[in-house]
Structures are given as structure tokens and as C-alpha cells.
Design a protein around this nucleic acid. Structure first.
Lengths: 197, 197
DNA sequence: GGTGCCATGTAACGCGTTACATGATTAT
DNA sequence: ATAATCATGTAACGCGTTACATGGCACC
């Protein structure tokens, strides 16, 4: 979804061909390493956009160079772009993989939840170290995009680490509670099972 | 990816049929409203898991009730589950839609970046208010999953709000800088364009 | 002559979504 | 009766991925 709309923005600047969009996207986000997009995605996305009437393409007999398709926004593509820019993103937190892992651990009692916790924590510390290093190297004058993204990533990672601490504290709490029983599947007409009740 | 693996966990508890997995997933994450999964996803995911040899299904002539397929883990499904639980999640921050919107705004100069900023900020405040309200209502003794997830969401939202403040400060800074020129497409053999250099 | 970037795609798959269809059982 | 929930799926699409294939041009 994001890439699609960013492409609309780059075409709004001026019509471009596919590979140019690929390169421009990399430049927009501050380097291909930061937000990697595969060329294949550009081509398939452009095909869908054209199919949806948001862009049109005109073939140019390359001279010099190979034949290219130049993609340009249609009016509906333009309005789609401003719509995207205007409306806020409803954050889809609440869908976290680490959270799921912990819940599965508590339900399955096959792997110790602390193991998940510790593995995650050390991975996040590693990540934080890496991020702050890259942040320190970035030039505030020429690499605005990279700076903003790294700052955001650092803040999120710190928040994740604090959350892990909180989770561990809660695990300590429930360690002194009775052990939850695994769910038994009912026969015939099963009721909706409730886990860790 | 997450749902797939959580299903493996639920089947590790005991073999289950599709709708039971659907219900168990809802219970696992603390309510369907929290992490909504459509039944269709369960069925298609189970088909892929069986195709991949991670689960097997046995048909039971329902008596009473309709005919069902009971899904159970295979050894390779079991090892896949422990693999997932053991390895940490490398966080894919660095792919944020709001960041992309801001970059597109700066490049396109069609919508004011502050508009994006303010829309996002008020949406996040709204979200934060909503989350803290739900958090206050949750019962720490019976709704562990909901509590953990809400705490996480709250921390992330706060981090996002702080980040928006930082971004605004940086926009103030560059407002006193020379305006970046839009990229012109080169002819013949275009070089990789660099935006907002 | 080879390496590497420019440039264009296709095919197939994974995850998730919406929409649709069908029918059994249970509670009111 | 009828509404809700249980229960099972199919079809088609969107976004993203990996892998593969092809060829031009530039530089060393």
C-alpha cells in the first residue's frame, strides 16, 4: 500500500519510466538499504495502477537506449495521491509477533516464555546499538530522510525494550499464581474454548 | 506469517478442527476485536500448511454435528513451531507509512507536510485516549493478553507522538534553509536521480 | 572480454482481504 | 419461527516476495 502511493507521488513530480521510479524511491527514503524495494514490485505495481486507471503509460521508442514506457498520473491518480496524503494512518499496533509468541508459549508450555523474552531482548539491544551507530554517522544536512527514519526506529526499539521489561515483571507476578490448564477439546458440539482463563 | 505459526501452537496443544482454531486464536489474543482473523484465512492457511507437510488432517464423520477435518501437527510442524518460538523477531521498523507520506510531501510540494503531521498527531491522540480507556477497563487477573497488548500499543503510540514532535522541530529547521529543487528527468540514458539532495 | 549497472519484464508463491455460498444446531 | 452462532469452504484480488530471463551500455 505504501509503495504504491509513494510511486504516485513520484509520478506527480513528473512522468517517469519504471526503473527511474525504482531509483527515485530509493533516493526518497534515503538509500536502498533503508527501505528495499525489488524492481519486480515496481513493475507489478505499475501494471495494477494502470489497470486501475490511476496512471497511463506511453511507449517511447528509445533513441538512444532501450524502449521504455513513461508513466504519468491520471486525474484520478492525482486525487488518490492527495487523499492518501491527507488522511491519517490508523496505527495497526495490536498486531505484534512477539506478543503472539508469548501467548503461544504460555498456552503450549513447550518453550519457556523467558527464552522468547531474552532472545528478543538481546536482538533488540543489538538493533538499538546498530541504529544509534548509524544515526551518529548520518549527516543532518544532507540525509534528512535517513535521520528521521533512524530516530523513529530508535524510539520504537526503546519502547519495545521497555515493554519487554514490563512483560517480564508480569510473568514474575503470574509465576506466583495457579497454573492455567490447557484447553480440552469438547466432543460433538464444541464451544468456543477460552484459553488461560 | 504470525497467524500461521500461532495456529501451529494451538494444534500443538491438541488436534483441532478449523473453526475451533478460529475461536482459539481469538481467545489466545484476548478477544476477536483485538486481533481480528477472518475464518477464510484459517481455511486457506490450513490448506497451505497441509500442502507443506506441517500438519495432517483426518476426516471425522460428524456424529452429531457436521463432518469435520481434525488437523494435527506433523514432526516437521512441531520443529517449525519451536524454531519460530526460539528465534527473535528482527523488527521491521524503518518501514513506516507516515514517514513515507512526509517524504512524498517534501518531494511533491503539493500538500503541506504540516497538514500530514497535524492529521497524524490528532489521530494518534485519539488512539491514545481510546487505548488508555480500554486499558483502564481491562482486568489484570483474567485478561493478561489484552493488558499486554494494550500496554504495548500505548507505548508505541507515545513513541510515535514524540517522534512527530521531533519531525516538526526538524521541519522548522529546514524552513530556514534553501528550497530543494525538483528532480529533472535526464534524456537518453538517465542516471539514478537523487531527490532533495 | 568481463564486471557491473541500466532496464524490462514473467511466473509462482505466501499472506491477508472481501465477498459469496451453504447448511446444521441452539437459544429465544 | 427466527435469529445467532457454529461450521465449512471457494473465488478473486492486493501487496509483497523470490527466482528467473533477457539484453544494452559503460568502464577497466
Amino acid at each position: 500500500m505504501s509503495v504504491r502511493n509513494a510511486l504516485l507521488g513520484l509520478m506527480a513530480q513528473q512522468p517517469r519510466h519504471a526503473y527511474e521510479l525504482y531509483a527515485a524511491f530509493g533516493a526518497l527514503v534515503g538509500g536502498e538499504e533503508v527501505w528495499e524495494v525489488k524492481p519486480a514490485q515496481i513493475y507489478t505495481t505499475l501494471a495494477r495502477l494502470e489497470e486501475g486507471g490511476l496512471v497511463t503509460s506511453s511507449t517511447t521508442s528509445g533513441d538512444p537506449g532501450p524502449e521504455r514506457r513513461i508513466y504519468a498520473l491520471t486525474p484520478s491518480g492525482q486525487s488518490e495521491l492527495t487523499r492518501w496524503l491527507t488522511e491519517p494512518v490508523i496505527p495497526l499496533h495490536e498486531r505484534d509477533e512477539v506478543f503472539l509468541k508469548l501467548m503461544v508459549c504460555l498456552a503450549v508450555r513447550d518453550v519457556n516464555p523467558r527464552r522468547v523474552l531474552y532472545a528478543q531482548r538481546s536482538a533488540l539491544y543489538q538493533e538499538l546499538h546498530d541504529l544509534t551507530g548509524r544515526r551518529a554517522e548520518a549527516d543532518p544536512h544532507t540525509e534528512l530522510a535517513r535521520i528521521l527514519l533512524l530516530d523513529q526506529a530508535i524510539m520504537h526499539t526503546e519502547a519495545d525494550l521497555r515493554w519487554l521489561d514490563m512483560v517480564e515483571a508480569r510473568l514474575d507476578d503470574i509465576a506466583r499464581q495457579p497454573v492455567p490448564q490447557p484447553v480440552t477439546r469438547s466432543r460433538g458440539r464444541p464451544r468456543k474454548p477460552e484459553i488461560n482463563r
